[in-house]
Computed example of a mutant assay.
Amino acid sequence: MAEIQDNGGSKKGKGSKQKKMAVRVDFTPMVDMNMLLITFFMLCTSLSKPQTMEISMPSNDKDITEEQQNKVKASQALTLLLDADNKLYYYEGEPNYKDYTSLKETTYTADGLRAILLRKNYDAVKKVEELKQKKANLEITEEQYKEQVADVKAGKNTPTVIIKATDKSTYRNLIDALDEMQICSIGKYVIVDITEGDQFLIDNYTSKGQLSANAVS
């Protein structure tokens, strides 16, 4: 509220100065109003939910048989090796320690890793796009869309991507690789520790096959 203060009443007369009024604005009620507004927005605004990514991690169960561990078909397996200086290597199927050219080098760009994943997962990507269009046309509900997409990603003919990072790779490299899993509708992928054999593949590739395959234990 505004309050007018009188600075004093001098008698009117010739040569007397005009009486001045001081105006003071009281902001105390604004504090209460601000608290009410804050409370209102806190009650009416929904908190943003953190976005999470589902990651399949290898089991620590020692009772898993070797046959169960190797149940992934070699033709469907793609192994990514993340190395220093944003280097990204990959091989399909089983590793070939005798031929250093079996290890390929690519990048994290759209025409690199993404192109490889889209090629191996072409059928699933096409089906997911069709489901997106059906959802946009209101032919299926959101729940139906999620359920059918999960079935497509878990299909028998979809690839399994194995991600292995060296100690010299960065956290950003891993995040970039995981982003491509989502973009390319890869439903089966795991993050595992890199092995001595994988490190040999990288070292042998960079040395153009100068290392001996007998070095792999």
Rank of each mutant, 00 (worst) to 15 (best):
A2D: 12
I4F: 14
D6V: 12
D6G: 06
G15H: 14
K17W: 05
K17A: 14
K17S: 13
R24K: 14
F27M: 09
M30G: 00
N34W: 11
L36E: 15
T39F: 01
S46P: 09
S48Y: 06
P50K: 05
M57G: 00
T65V: 07
E67R: 07
Q69K: 15
K71H: 11
A74Q: 08
Q76A: 08
L81R: 08
L82I: 12
Y90H: 08
Y90K: 04
G93L: 06
E94T: 14
S102L: 04
L103P: 12
A115N: 08
I116M: 03
R119D: 13
D123Y: 08
V125L: 10
V128F: 06
Q133S: 14
K134F: 04
K134G: 04
A136P: 00
N137C: 02
N137R: 09
I140N: 03
I140E: 07
T141S: 15
E142H: 02
E143M: 05
Y145E: 07
V149W: 06
V149A: 02
A150V: 06
D151G: 00
A154I: 03
K156C: 01
T158K: 08
V161P: 04
I162H: 06
I162D: 04
K164C: 06
A165H: 00
S169Y: 03
S169A: 14
T170C: 05
R172G: 08
I183W: 01
C184S: 15
I186K: 01
I191T: 10
D193P: 00
D193V: 00
F200P: 12
F200R: 07
K208A: 05
A215Q: 15
